[in-house]
Nucleic acid binder design. Structure first.
Length: 950
RNA sequence: GCCGAAGUGGCGGAACUGGUAGACGCGCUGGACUCAAAAUCCAGUGUCUGCAAAGAUGUGCGGGUUCGAGUCCCGCCUUCGGUACCA
């Protein structure tokens, strides 16, 4: 018995295409359901088996929901702008447009082979001018709005200008970088450039000089979430801090809402935790410390105002603007030297040089506002300019970093908390000491009390701080959306007229990064506009297009709006979003921020874009390493068997990843190369043809194997690891190959059967045969031994119906909770049992076909046709569970408590009768059994145990 | 350090609100078919004792709650993910 899946797949792919089975419109009376995948970067290496994991899951849900009476939006597109696409283009020296085109067609071909039910008529590409027109448009909306904290929403900048003209900026409560106050007279007197500078401090998309993460190797700045451990996330290149003039988005204005609204989302706890850690809310107070013998004061932020009596010195960030103003003349040199030293330390050095405290004394003193004690003011790089106020009051009695600093520079320490035994610095348990009015209070009480005093004596105020910084938005690269801003000769920024959008990226031959400026800066005819203005030459970051693409799918053809009103109001938000955790703080944060902004403008009906979020795990690959000596011996490369040289120093060895297909027993402790494997290796890498291979039983050299004794056969052990699937490990599995060998249905089911969706798991082809066998068995339910389709119209027996309804019950509830691996187990169980009963009845098998259709669309479609149906199985109704057959064996655990003594008994109620009626019988026999006992309560849950409380 | 998730056979993993632990698949063992192999089918398969019936034991470790714990509580250990001079 064979299934000709190649013919079946080709047949139905074109049938679905021709009949536009998966096209949806919003004009439909049915309830909507929006299932979204995180769209991929079309990279040069194509999809590997890991990519479709989430897509298979979302496709199953889409098909299931469609069959359950929903109008389902299930689109796909490409995140084609940005660093990866451009890096690939530079490496392969092919223009990004060309490379992107061909990559996308490869991706689409691979995706279509897996039988996804995407509505391709809605495909979007972020690099398409018809798409990025609206990315630029939203950017300009951000540019022309500010965040009003009284209204708690974004308001047009024009109304802010009107208020400035009337009464200056006093009384305006906005998210702003503006520090100084001005009156309406001041405003009128400002030059256009000065007014522009002020407005930049309010705009939600704004340009200013700030310290940014500059990556020399990539030739661009990066946002905080694009930097991991001091190196770029993409490529792992070093990143340094640099002051540059850059566009940023004022995400911080939305920090509170981004944090609070997490509660309303069906996301995993870990996902919510990641976002809330990134936002990093902390409550505290800001306080001013007067600098002794000067007119200056230092503003600090602290979450522990209760420790103020223990503050024995202050520390400013080296970049703090006050440093130059307060440093005493004789210490200027030392301070400047230290500032230079800090500049030379890259972000990475700072992280690597752990706990090594460095700093310099400014010579200035401040007065502790509570004790009036004179305390020294230092600078040190453990205080960061861009968190809080860039200055702290140091409390070595309660902060480990301050304590380390105090010890190193011999500064005084005052203990302010009497801790219980074993309590360490920073421990919040204990009572306050040496703190005047706070003595004897707990930390919590002390914080409450001191905050009251601070406000009463007008020394400072309560303040909530967020770790989250504004997002740097400029990239000095070619392959991105041009920033639609022009400047006049005095440098005032203007939004490009919306009618002139999209500002299309010029076609360049040389698109390589160009120092600190974008490659676009080299195109003078593009930079200079006819009316004497100059264009901004930076482009937008990778997350720009992905921050709103899900809205475009709702109405991708719209030419006059980012998406039509009716369409947006119909589809509203994404019901289920599936994608990887790597976007936890990047894409997902920005998309939520943009969405909230659009919500403030009344352009979208919901405050959150993604109702339910599921993170699929990674599919890992087996990596096989072979060991060779680092230095060639007499010009000859020597490979060694690791198990023979365990005692040798590992420094002399290098490991190289080799294709797993050469390796015998790959992925196991016995993974090794046989002589044939070595020959394959030499064929693959001819530079190793002269290499010496030292195996367990002899040596292989130049085509000859010299045994060490009488041994036959020999092994060259390799080392197995589970890790990423990627080109560099030679372990990429192309879904096309798997589909060609086993069929698309088998591929889809196997990906789901591997394990829970959220979990990372290694790809192991050896297990795929089980799923393949199942599909054959399933097919054989409908076919005779000589492969004739055969089905009977006999009524189903009780036993058969029970199998059916149990399968329906389990599969339905498992799909709802996205436990797709167990669904497949249930299909297998049902198939096995029906096979055993030799059941070939339509009444049983037809619903099973529907049940399995979302998982195995091709086979089910084929069988559906054989069953004599005209329409697609995917438009049929998903089978309903009939609860009549729900009740299973009833087991009773009655419990008797007689004083202190208890006895227990259990019995199986009439195990041979397994449906609703037997419960009634069961209850009777329970009651009979319990006669004479004092029963308080009997609880019956269908299909479950009966609990009897006495 | 802090935050989050998870530890179950030889392996991947089931067990929804506490209720017969190990579903389903892989692998392995034995058998059928075959000249033989592949494929397919049947039976068995946590561990220990036993010919068997059966018994004991068993969900990272140590305690606890409960008639009953993989599941709940307390204290540890390990692994993975995130994050960090964040004041």
């Amino acid at each position: 018995m064979r299934i000709d899946f190649k013919t079946i797949e080709a047949k139905w792919k074109s049938a679905w295409d021709q009949n536009k089975v998966y096209q949806v419109t919003h004009l439909d009376g049915k309830p909507k359901f929006y299932v979204l995948d995180m769209f991929p970067y079309p990279s040069g290496s194509g999809l590997h088996v890991g990519h479709p994991l989430g897509y298979v899951a979302s496709d199953i849900i889409s098909r299931y929901k469609r069959m359950s009476g929903f109008n389902v939006l299930h689109p796909m597109g490409f995140d084609a702008f940005g660093l990866p696409a451009e890096q690939y283009a530079i490496q392969s020296n092919i223009h990004p447009v060309t490379a992107t085109e061909s990559n996308i067609s490869r991706y689409k071909e691979q995706l279509s082979n897996i039988g996804f039910s995407y509505d391709w008529s809605r495909e979007v590409r972020t690099c398409d001018p018809a798409f990025y027109h609206w990315t630029q448009w939203i950017f300009l909306q951000l540019f022309s709005h500010y965040y009003d904290q009284d209204e708690n929403k974004a308001i047009a900048i024009s109304s802010l200008i009107a208020r400035f003209q009337k009464s200056g900026n006093a009384g305006i409560n906005a998210a702003t970088g503006q520090e100084s106050e001005f009156t309406h007279d001041d405003w009128q007197r400002m030059s256009a450039k000065e007014q522009d500078d002020v407005l930049m401090n309010y705009r939600l998309a704004f340009r200013k000089i700030s310290y940014v993460n500059w990556c020399e190797a990539l030739g661009t700045v990066l946002a905080n979430d694009e930097v991991k451990d001091g190196v770029s996330e993409r490529g792992g290149y070093p990143v340094e801090r640099r002051a540059m003039i850059q566009w940023s988005l004022r995400v911080s204005a939305y920090a509170e809402r981004l944090l609070n609204d997490l509660d309303s989302l069906e996301w995993t706890d870990s996902m919510k935790a990641m976002q809330s850690n990134w936002i990093g809310r902390s409550e505290g107070a800001q306080l001013d410390f007067d600098v002794v013998e000067s007119e200056h004061s230092v503003r600090i932020f602290t979450t522990r105002p209760d420790t103020i009596y223990g503050s024995t010195f202050m520390v400013l960030a080296p970049e703090h603007p006050l440093v130059d103003l307060i440093t005493s003349p004789e210490l200027k040199n030392v301070v400047n030297q230290y500032k230079d030293f800090v500049k030379t330390r890259s972000e990475r050095d700072r992280l690597a040089g752990t706990k090594q405290m460095t700093g310099a004394f400014t010579g200035a003193y401040a007065a502790n506002p509570f004790t009036n004690e004179k305390i020294q003011i230092w600078i040190a790089d453990y205080v960061l300019m861009d968190y809080g106020t860039g200055a702290i009051m140091a409390v070595p009695g309660d902060d480990t970093r301050d304590l380390a600093f105090a010890k190193k520079f011999k500064l005084p320490v005052i203990e302010i908390i009497e801790r219980p035994d074993g309590g360490e610095t920073g421990d919040r348990r204990g009572v306050m000491i040496n703190s005047q009015s706070l003595n004897g209070l707990s930390v919590q009480e002390a914080i409450a009390k001191i905050l009251g005093e601070i406000e009463q004596r007008k020394l400072g105020s309560r303040l909530v701080q967020y770790k989250m910084r504004d997002a740097i938005y400029s990239r000095q690269r070619y392959w991105g959306e041009p920033i639609p801003i022009v400047y006049d000769t005095s440098g005032v920024a203007y939004a490009m007229e919306e009618t002139k959008l999209p500002l299309v990226l010029p076609d360049l031959d040389d698109f390589k990064p160009g120092g600190s400026a974008s490659p676009l800066a080299r195109v003078t005819e593009w930079v200079n506009t006819p009316n004497g203005m100059q264009r901004d030459t930076d482009t937008m970051p990778g997350y720009a297009g992905s921050s709103w693409y899900f809205l475009r799918y709702m109405d991708p053809w719209n030419k006059s709006r980012f998406a039509g009103k009716d369409e947006i109001n119909y589809w509203r938000d994404v019901d289920l979003y599936i994608g990887g955790t790597e976007h936890a703080v990047g894409h997902l944060m920005y998309a939520r921020f943009w969405h909230k902004f659009l919500y403030d403008k009344g352009l979208v009906p919901t405050a959150e874009p993604f109702r339910r979020l599921v993170n699929q795990g990674m599919i890992q690959g087996v990596i096989e390493y072979l060991f060779m000596y680092k230095e060639k011996q007499n010009g000859i490369t020597k490979f060694v068997c690791t198990k023979l040289i365990a005692d040798e120093s590992e420094d002399a060895l290098v490991r190289i990843a080799i294709p797993v297909i050469f390796v015998e027993n790959y992925g196991s402790p016995d993974s090794h190369l046989t002589i044939e494997g070595i020959e394959k290796l030499i064929e693959w890498r001819p530079e190793y043809q002269d290499a010496i291979f030292e195996c367990t039983q002899g040596t292989y050299h130049q085509g000859k194997f010299t045994p060490k004794g009488t041994a036959t056969g020999s092994k060259l052990y390799t080392q197995s690891e589970i890790g990423k699937m990627g080109k560099r490990y030679h372990n990429v599995v192309d879904p096309n190959d798997v589909v060609a060998k086993y069929g698309a249905d088998c591929f889809r089911m196997y990906e789901m059967f591997l394990g829970p969706l959220e979990q990372s798991k290694p790809w192991d082809t050896r297990n795929i045969d089980g799923v393949s066998r199942f599909l054959k068995k399933f097919w054989s339910l409908f076919h005779t031994d000589d492969d004739r389709f055969e089905i009977t119209d006999e009524p189903a027996t009780r036993e058969e119906l029970k199998i059916l309804h149990q399968a329906i019950k389990h599969v339905r509830s498992d799909i709802e909770r996205l436990s797709l691996n167990t669904c497949i187990s249930h299909f297998m169980t049902a198939t096995n049992e029906l096979k055993k009963l030799n059941c070939q009845k339509r009444a049983v098998l037809e619903p099973i076909v529907l049940l399995i259709a979302p998982f195995a669309p091709f086979i089910s479609e084929e069988i559906w046709e054989l069953l004599g149906h005209q329409t697609s199985v995917h438009l049929a109704e998903y089978p309903e569970f009939n609860p009549h057959f729900l009740v299973e064996d009833v087991i009773v655990y009655p419990v008797c408590i007689n004083g202190k003594k208890r006895t227990e008994a259990s019995f199986d109620l009439n195990a041979s009768q397994k449906d609703m009626e037997s419960t009634v019988l069961g209850m009777e026999s329970v009651q009979k059994w319990l006669e004479g006992q004092s029963i308080k309560k009997v609880v019956i849950v269908p299909g479950r145990m009966i609990n009897i409380v006495i």
